[in-house]
Amino acid sequence: VTTYKLVINGKTLKGETTTKAVDAETAEKAFKQYANDNGVDGVWTYDDATKTFTVTEMV
């Protein structure tokens, strides 16, 4: 189990959260659900070296 981080660069919501998951795919599903629940829709990137997902909403 690995800890993954999500950085949110939203128009109205900004911040970070973490989740523990067995792999990046599982973490991504959890983060996308979290973003969807919070009304964040944007471009996703993932950095495997730092285990960090970033979602950026276009203005």
Rank of each mutant, 00 (worst) to 15 (best):
Y46T: 01
T2M: 14
G15H: 13
Y4M: 01
G39E: 06
D48M: 09
E28R: 12
D47K: 03
N38W: 12
V7T: 05
F53P: 00
T12Q: 08
K29Y: 08
V7I: 13
D23E: 04
T26A: 10
E28S: 06
E57C: 05
N36F: 14
Y46C: 01
K20Y: 15
E25T: 12
V40N: 02
D37H: 09
K32S: 04
E25R: 11
M58I: 14
A49F: 10
A21W: 03
D41F: 14
T18C: 10
D41V: 15
L13M: 13
V59I: 11
N38P: 01
A35H: 01
N36G: 09
T18L: 08
V59M: 13
K20W: 15
T2K: 07
Q33H: 07
T52G: 02
T52S: 04
T19A: 09
Y46N: 00
A24M: 15
G42K: 01
T54A: 04
I8Q: 02
L6N: 01
T52F: 02
D47V: 05
A30Y: 14
T50M: 05
F53V: 01
N38E: 08
K20C: 11
D37C: 09
F53L: 01
V59H: 12
V55F: 03
Y4S: 01
T26G: 07
A21K: 03
W44T: 01
A21T: 05
V43C: 09
F53N: 00
I8T: 03
F31P: 00
Y46R: 02
F53Y: 06
T12G: 10
D48W: 06
K51G: 04
W44R: 00
Y4N: 01
D41K: 14
G42C: 02
M58N: 13
W44P: 00
V43P: 03
T54P: 00
A49V: 12
E57V: 07
A21N: 03
G15N: 10
E57D: 09
D37R: 09
Q33S: 15
K5Y: 13
G42Q: 02
K11N: 09
K20T: 15
V1W: 13
K20M: 15
G42V: 02
T2N: 12
N36W: 14
K20A: 15
V59T: 13
D37W: 07
T17A: 15
N9F: 14
V1P: 13
E16K: 07
L6T: 01
F53M: 02
K32A: 05
K14L: 07
V55C: 06
D23R: 04
Q33C: 06
E28V: 08
G39P: 01
Q33I: 14
G15Q: 14
N36Q: 09
L6M: 05
V43E: 11
A24R: 13
V1A: 12
Y46K: 01
A24V: 11
L13G: 08
K5H: 12
E25S: 12
K51P: 00
V55L: 10
T12E: 11
T50Q: 06
K51Y: 10
T3Q: 09
V40P: 02
D47P: 00
A21Y: 04
T56Q: 07
T52M: 04
K11T: 11
